[in-house]
Design a protein around this nucleic acid. Structure first.
Length: 202
DNA sequence: ACTACGATCCAA
DNA sequence: TGGATCGTAGTA
């Protein structure tokens, strides 16, 4: 399924904070098709539909918040709708959206954005590290609200993706709770990260 | 202070 | 399939 958006094809308002104040897995699925908007210092604007996500919850051993509040993952315990950006492998940053009510940890990892690239392996946003590198997202954006259109990074309402167009798989790159089917991506989209593992599908 | 490891990516 | 690369967290 190809998702091509023009600037005028999606509404100009952000998803409200109440959108994120729900069970993490539900938010993850509903984030597919929504529009991530990045406004750069020089005025350039990038916008693209979210096409791949993963869910992480407080009772999930693979979650940074598992085992209690630490400095790195502090925002995960705060109110929903804020960005959780962390640094990993000495090189990359990853972008999450905080979910669940204030005081309950939870987040959705944004793994891929449709950047409109044509053909395979052309996308610059088909992976959590790649998309943060391309969109210049780092820890200075940790904790900013994503429901506020005035921010340099926010999420606007896009298109609802039907269940039949969503692929469900295990999460990538983790060793704990590796059997949970908490990765969701739009079927047949060229910007979905290519390291898809289907071996553990039921 | 020292050590192990990680929600990745890319070359080979 | 393995190496790069360094912040984070746990242990001493």
């Amino acid at each position: 399924m190809s998702i091509a958006y023009k600037q005028d094809k999606f509404s100009d308002h952000c998803l409200p904070s109440s959108f994120y104040d729900r069970p993490t897995v539900d938010v993850a699925k509903d984030l597919l098709g929504q529009i991530l908007v990045r406004r750069f210092e020089d005025g350039r604007v990038f916008s693209g539909a979210i096409v791949e996500v993963e869910a992480y919850t407080a009772d999930d051993p693979a979650c940074h918040a598992f085992g209690g509040k630490k400095q790195r993952c502090e925002v995960m315990f705060g109110p929903p709708g804020f960005a959780y950006v962390y640094f990993i492998y000495g090189i990359y940053h990853c972008l999450n959206v905080v979910t669940e009510s204030d005081g309950i940890a939870g987040a959705v990892l944004i793994r891929a954005i449709d950047d409109g690239a044509l053909g395979r392996n052309q996308s610059k946003t088909d992976g959590p590290g790649k998309l943060c590198r391309y969109l210049e997202i780092d820890r200075t954006l940790n904790g900013i609200p994503l429901f506020d259109a005035k921010q340099v990074l926010c999420i606007k309402t896009g298109r609802k993706i039907e269940n039949k167009d969503i692929e469900v798989t295990t999460r990538i790159g983790i060793t704990k709770a590796a059997d949970r089917l908490w990765r969701f991506h739009v079927k047949d989209n060229h910007s979905v990260s290519r390291r898809t593992t289907y071996s553990k599908r039921p």
